[in-house]
Write a protein that binds this DNA or RNA. Structure first.
Lengths: 241, 241
DNA sequence: TCAAAAGTGTTCCGAATACACCCATGC
DNA sequence: GCATGGGTGTATTCGGAACACTTTTGA
């Protein structure tokens, strides 16, 4: 490697080659929403180390691959979905986090609408399963730590940005939205007040369609108006609750 | 390296050795507060590449060094201060972010009380300077991107957590606190309302001392009550504004 | 006595809360 | 008709915004 003797300004006397010994990986915390509960997608490892344990999906980053591309690839390989909501949340770099060598991993979290998710025929997908985030199995590596940090980030994000919409189908009713937020935040809303608040934000586009095949009055459907949200955001509007 | 043929479950056929080619560094965005303005500490590079440009301080991580230890070391080497507020905010991993080789860098941001900061006699400190965050010089590498992300993170953090206290001396007056938050957030508060709000949060410990040597009525001094804040946080209290 | 900042009190308004109530549909 | 969720209206409360005012110090 044609690296100078010091990267920034360092006191190290070691040849610089000795510094290019890191492995780099990405791990994805994939959230979904089913039956009123927040789920996370895990796979069962088929190889050592930690063979048989459940784990986040992830992979080593290639030498010429951008971090976010690596994360997108991992996600696409498992779900077949492209352009999914994907956000980096933390880099985990403890010396001993991997039993065999020095691997730094970057955590991404992702929200998928479970209806879109069709496990595809890969060695991964066969062993993939959704777990309730309050009822997790033992995890490989430091994936438990990563997952907890991911959940924390999700909750922070949900409270201040209209993140949750990614978990719903594109068209949804106000009650569905309310139930989702109740699951995400862990507390109840008053129906009337929740509606008033979200409607007045002006980030939902009311549709002329209604829910069908329900044994009660059919509810109006809405879409998240992303364009409108971006516009409001620029004006200083900030999503709360 | 005794690495198995696949890290997680991968389709790669390459020998695994080819994946351990990453350099890893940390870069610190160090914020300070002087004369009512938010500053950031930069150093002038003495070596190629980007010799002469201003840059964040940072360094390569050693093979057996934890990420956060690396960041702390960098900070200590420049300022002589240990146990400073330091928080990871993002990993920057573009393939081409470094002109000479593949180096992934992890950004940390830090808040220091400028009174504590005494540049120490090192090759770094000689060329260190505080810059107003609205008046930045040209920066080396992708440090401008990193810095902007750091500023963004700071503003998010400040709004939802009692972060700003690190920028003040341990004992401060309410007006000093107000002016700091005005600088951080970019807008004014009403004196009376600001006081009421912050006092009612119960996270400040009023002292029996007062500011001295001022040509007007001396103000009461306060301390941030970290213990109390942690306790309140556990009960679900959330700091806002 | 004046300037400058410390510190307090009060009114007003809008938003959040807590309910109560009516509507539409399938069975 | 009744169960179920859809959808609306309103009185009350609480907290924030705006602003005025008094106090204490040094010069």
């Amino acid at each position: 490697m044609k690296f100078p003797n010091s990267y920034y300004i360092s006191d190290y006397k070691l040849p610089i080659n000795d510094y290019f010994v890191f492995g780099l990986s990405v791990d994805c915390v994939i959230f979904g929403y089913q039956e009123g509960e927040i789920k996370v997608l895990l796979v069962q490892r088929g190889l050592e180390p930690f063979k048989g344990n459940w784990a986040l999906i992830g992979d080593l980053v290639e030498p010429k691959q951008n971090l976010c591309d690596a994360a997108n690839n991992v996600l696409e390989k498992l779900t077949g979905l492209k352009n999914i909501y994907l956000k980096q949340f933390f880099a985990f770099g403890s010396v001993d986090r991997h039993p065999l060598d020095r691997v730094v991993t970057v955590g991404y979290f992702s929200l998928v609408n479970s209806m879109d998710y069709k496990p595809i025929a890969s060695s991964w997908a066969k062993s993939a399963r959704w777990f309730n985030i309050n009822d997790l199995p033992e995890l490989a590596f430091d994936h438990h730590t990563i997952l907890l940090k991911g959940i924390e980030t999700l909750k922070d994000e949900v409270r201040h940005k209209p993140t949750g919409f990614e978990l719903l189908p594109p068209k949804f009713t106000l009650l569905e939205l309310q139930l989702l937020y109740e699951a995400l935040l862990g507390y109840k809303f008053d129906k009337s007040n929740f509606r008033k608040k979200i409607i007045e934000m002006n980030i939902l586009k009311p549709l002329k369609e209604a829910k069908e095949n329900v044994s009660h009055r059919p509810a109006q459907l809405f879409e998240f108006d992303e364009k409108r949200y971006r516009a409001l955001e620029k004006e200083g509007f900030s999503f709360e609750l």
